[in-house]
Design a protein around this nucleic acid. Structure first.
Lengths: 251, 251
DNA sequence: CGACCGCTTGATCATAATCAAATTTTGTGG
DNA sequence: CCACAAAATTTGATTATGATCAAGCGGTCG
């Protein structure tokens, strides 16, 4: 065991900070993260270019819109929100990133980060210098392919969000987010039905194109329907099928 | 001159069909398309893997959601819309692709196309087999980098659409689309102020998360303000600054 | 302890959806 | 080329969803 798993469904515990420099080969996320497609020898090469950070405090930026792009980041623990600032100073949350997920790829296009990223709670991240990753990719076809796939997945996920924003009601949007977080937790072998939301209601609304008030009302409605038990950020899904029906989208 | 340019601002002419097998080296789009970053020798290698199609009739599919992913496509002439079909059978337009632009990259993630693509008018496309492109990328760092950049640009453009859908009014969304098309025309050395929209009002609404009626009303409003002259699909921008102010977004 | 922050709930309002119908454009066959 | 049918677009009237405005609650931190 190299990472915190005890009472994982109640994640109000402080993230475990020991052993944060675990290598990719020993990281419990290596079946869902960047090393996914790699053999042992290749993982070691990847290991060498990756920089592991100390735990990052809540509210810290990994990068800001406009910063020079040098690296992409893998989330090891905690949670990160990515957001853009609109011309009139408002914020648009473009994604939430959970352990095993990669962010920062939007910076490749202009060699400048197109969005900002900040931690929603204490987090650990792996920094992957993009130049090294590119070079390694040219030598390791499976790494190149996997990185193409990661970028492509980012595109398809953005398209799902586009569709959600364009076609779905407030109820459907919030339900879809809950289903998404639930299944991403399941992928990490955590509870699909009982978890703590790392983001605020404001961030949820911002991500889903809704106001805080509307998000709050949807949570209330879902509780009245006995789909959920909500205790602030702690969520228990009582009727998964109900929530999925409400979401009315695949996933 | 290898491609049709005469009276380019009045694109109600039939697309020119001669010389449709022009090589990348001679293609007038090669400064904005995939060969962008390549030297002459390298362009020749790229040329060899690219399959050029005969003109494709209006309404034909390049690929459908769920089809096996084998290639990405570069638009040579005409216009393509990409769209997803939602679970309840409705359509979400995820992008419009004009000459020099690349589509299909969302298929890499699952080796299956995540969206469908059909021509909005008679079009010519270059098909680029992805396996060949990957292999070539491993040998040509600048091609690999440029392809990473293209995928990254797709991500940033999706994020711009997400923000538009989430934060902006109907007026702002339509204005932003006009500004986008205008600047993409300018990039191809066509008129920024006088052009023909290749897509229907339904498609516009679908893309922007609005109904046809709303799109139509916005066009009427913009005409009343003397920002535009609209004659069906023919658009003349009379007050570019006015339209940009209305769009209220960068671009 | 009090100020502040995040969340919830209620009342009212505005924007764009929906419903309905007229009008223009496009496509087809004679 | 015209006539007609079908499709696309526009305009108007009404409605619904979620935004905005307003207030209150509970927890936290200085």
């Amino acid at each position: 065991m190299s990472a915190p798993t005890s009472t994982a469904t109640h994640s109000d515990l402080k993230p475990c900070t020991h052993d944060f420099k675990v290598s990719c080969g020993n990281c419990r996320l290596n079946r869902i993260c960047l090393p996914l497609a790699l053999e042992n020898d290749d993982i070691e090469q990847l290991d060498e270019i990756i920089q592991r950070s100390k735990p990052v405090q809540k509210g810290q930026h990994l990068y800001r819109e406009g910063d020079e792009f040098t690296s992409v980041y893998a989330v090891r623990s905690g949670a990160i929100k990515a957001y853009k600032t609109t011309d009139d100073g408002r914020e648009q949350v473009t994604g939430f990133y959970l352990p095993g997920e990669i962010l920062g790829m939007d910076g490749i296009s202009k060699n400048t980060h197109a969005s900002s990223a900040r931690t929603l709670e204490q987090s650990a991240v792996c920094e992957i210098p993009f130049k090294s990753l590119s070079k390694l990719s040219a030598l390791m076809p499976s790494l190149q392919h996997h990185f193409f796939q990661l970028m492509s997945r980012e595109i398809t996920e953005d398209q799902i969000l586009i569709t959600l924003l364009s076609k779905n009601s407030a109820d459907e949007r919030v339900a879809a987010l809950l289903v998404s977080i639930s299944s991403r937790n399941a992928r990490r072998k955590l509870s699909a039905t009982h978890f703590r939301l790392p983001m605020s209601r404001v961030d949820i609304g911002n991500y889903l194109g809704l106001t805080v008030e509307t998000v709050s009302r949807v949570f209330s409605r879902m509780q009245k329907l006995d789909f959920l038990r909500v205790d602030n950020k702690e969520i228990e899904i009582l009727d998964m099928q109900g929530v999925k029906n409400m979401a009315n989208v695949a996933g």
